[in-house]
Design a protein around this nucleic acid. Structure first.
Length: 569
RNA sequence: GGCAGGAUAGCUCAGCGGUAGAGCAGCGGACUCAUAAGCCGUUGGUCGCGGGUUCAAAUCCCGCUCCUGCUACCA
């Protein structure tokens, strides 16, 4: 990927960029890990690319199928549809609340998705990339369900540890086959599972090893994140395994063939197709049914997948293999998978607590400070730890004090001393004034390049540093004094500071969409931030400045203890 | 077991071949426009351990210790 580092005006015919975001599983609310891992970086990336004038399409949807949804429905005495609908709505509310700017957030429970999935299924079957075979599986006769390996526990055949899961032993770390467990028991009902044969469809992954290897080794994939690239190469070197892509369940996408009424296509095969089906849905809805091709069949398009690291194999091996089988569709340009965020040192876990639920957060705080704090410690190269102490510090020291206060102090002095209007600067600026504006303009290149490479931490650090430079500039020129002795000097300072802020607003907008929009209006600008593209929008002398308000609230230290208690660790 | 990432100032982390850096915390100072914010200065580290390569290593190589995570038949 060549980083876009040059500043260009908005351009309706920019590059087509598909921002594909992992599909959340509709069996619980979203938490901070989801946001930091996938939705926030995707949103920052999309907002930046839109301002660059690129044709961005950002899609995702609820993954409505799969065993845990049905399990949860049974526990609650309701239907899978009900569970899925409830959380789907929760997701929509959460994205709205945090400003995650999807062009479409749909679900796998649509007629369109089912149709696209079945069509691809049949196409791959015809290609010979799917085949039928019998599979021996464990069946829980009390729950009346075949058991995924993870739902079986027993004694590890290798180390005799009692409590090994069907897929892996937590004690000795070896990968297991559920059929080899000694004294197996179902995690659903505690029943002793019985062996049953079942006929299923398999994805012939083994046939794709060579092609995938070639694809990964293309020069443009060299700068994929090391953990993504190496993990994928490792899988390919070890040898792929054909996997069954159907299950004995009734909640899911039906198999479009006679005699398979009691089986469904399984989620890991079907959910990734959502990227394609969602694009088609968006195109159809916007009145141009062929519009999806701009992102999927035009080789000039860029498709970037934002997911958590646990999802890497599906996006760098399985989905590309499926796309190769289908033919004529773009393979992922990049999969900048993130690592994990831990909460106060504890891994987010639904059972053990230690989770910041996003709907919960929004009841008490504003979205931008969370976006800011999570971006500042985004798990791009390693797991990171979120603490409320860090959140409060970043809010108070960086958002309130450094950035918010910069805007506030500049606007206040100006309004008070220049009749509420932006003062006029001399035609030739002093060197330090010019230097500040140059610094802001330069940040469009450096920070923009970081956004483009999906290095959000670096981007944000670079942006906030410029706010620091603006504060230094102000202190050096002390317009609050100059206004009494040399009005022209003060006028230049404030004019320059206001214009520097204007640039900073645009630069920070991908991370802080809500508060930068507010600030944008405080400068007398109209419309949306960045409407003029990825560049500093000048604020002209004489512009009437409306009364500003605080962009951020200072938080009391007691928030830390309160929220830590709420984490229940 | 395999793979990845980490181990650098009290804390969070950046640097990734060329005289140890930032923010916060601590200490001192000048200022007062601002949500008592901002600015300047300063204390503080034998860069996990042991070898090696090099004129030069936090930075490259080998070995070791500890931490985190991933490991497609859960999403």
């Amino acid at each position: 990927m060549s980083p876009n580092t040059s500043v260009s005006p908005p351009n309706a015919s920019g590059q087509a960029i598909l921002v594909a975001v992992g599909w959340p599983y509709a069996n619980n609310h979203l938490h901070a890990g989801h946001l930091a891992g996938a939705y926030l970086p995707a949103d920052i990336f999309a907002r930046y690319q839109r301002m660059r004038g690129n044709r961005v399409l950002m899609v995702s949807g609820s993954d409505s199928h799969g065993t845990p949804v049905t399990v949860r429905a049974e526990q609650e005495g309701t239907t899978p549809e009900d569970v899925f609908q409830r959380y789907h709505q929760s997701f929509l509310d959460t994205f709205k609340g945090f400003g995650i700017s999807f062009d479409l957030f749909t679900s796998t429970d649509t007629a369109n998705h089912i149709e696209v999935t079945q069509q691809l299924f049949l196409q791959m079957l015809e290609q010979g990339d799917l085949y039928e075979a019998d599979q021996e599986l464990l069946f829980d006769s009390i729950a009346g369900r075949f058991l995924p390996d993870r739902y079986v526990e027993g004694i590890c055949p290798k180390c005799s540890f009692d409590g090994a899961r069907g897929d892996q032993c937590d004690n000795c770390g070896s990968t297991l086959d559920a059929l080899d467990l000694i004294n197996p028991r179902s995690k659903l009902s505690d029943a002793t599972p019985e062996r049953r044969k079942s006929r299923h469809f398999f994805l012939r992954l083994t046939a794709f090893t060579e092609r995938l290897m070639k694809w990964i080794e293309q020069p443009e994939h060299r700068d994929w994140r090391p953990h993504v690239r190496n993990f994928t190469l490792g899988m390919l070197r070890e040898g792929l395994i054909d996997r069954s892509i159907t299950r004995d369940i009734t909640w899911g996408v039906p198999i479009p063939l006679e005699g398979y009424e009691s089986k469904r296509i399984y989620v890991w095969f079907e959910a990734v197709i959502g990227y394609l089906s969602a694009t088609k849905e968006w195109a159809a809805t916007s009145g141009n049914p062929d519009g999806w091709k701009a992102w999927w069949t035009d080789p000039a398009a860029r498709t970037v997948y934002f997911i958590g690291k646990d999802n890497v194999p599906f996006h760098t091996v399985i989905w590309p293999a499926m796309l190769m089988s289908a033919g004529g569709l773009n393979l992922p340009s990049d999969v900048p998978a993130n690592q994990y965020v831990t909460m106060s040192g504890s891994k987010a876990s639904k059972s053990r607590g230690g989770v910041v639920w996003l709907p919960d957060y929004l009841e008490r705080y504003d979205p931008d400070p969370f976006r800011y704090a999570l971006t500042a410690s985004m798990p791009e190269t390693n797991d990171t730890d979120f603490t409320w102490a860090d959140y409060v510090r970043r809010n108070n020291d960086e958002l309130v004090a450094r950035w918010g206060n910069l805007v506030n102090r500049v606007l206040t002095i100006t309004r008070r001393n220049f009749d509420g209007r932006v003062p006029r600067a001399p035609s030739t600026l002093s060197p330090e004034s010019q230097a500040l504006l140059d610094r802001v303009d330069g940040a469009f290149d450096t920070v923009g390049g970081d956004y483009d490479r999906v290095q959000m931490r670096r981007a944000l650090a670079g942006a906030i540093e410029v706010a620091g430079a603006a504060n230094q500039y102000l202190d050096a020129r002390a317009p609050w004094q100059a206004v009494k002795t040399d009005r022209d000097h003060a006028a230049e300072t404030l004019y320059v500071a206001i214009n520097a802020i204007s640039g900073l607003i645009t630069i920070l907008n991908p991370v802080l969409p809500f508060t930068t929009q507010k600030a944008w209006e405080y400068l007398g600008h109209e419309g949306k931030v960045g409407i003029a593209g990825w560049r500093r929008t000048p604020v002209l002398a004489g512009t009437v400045l409306p009364e500003p308000g605080p962009l951020y609230r200072k938080l009391d230290d007691s928030v830390v203890a309160e929220e830590e208690a709420r984490l229940g660790l």
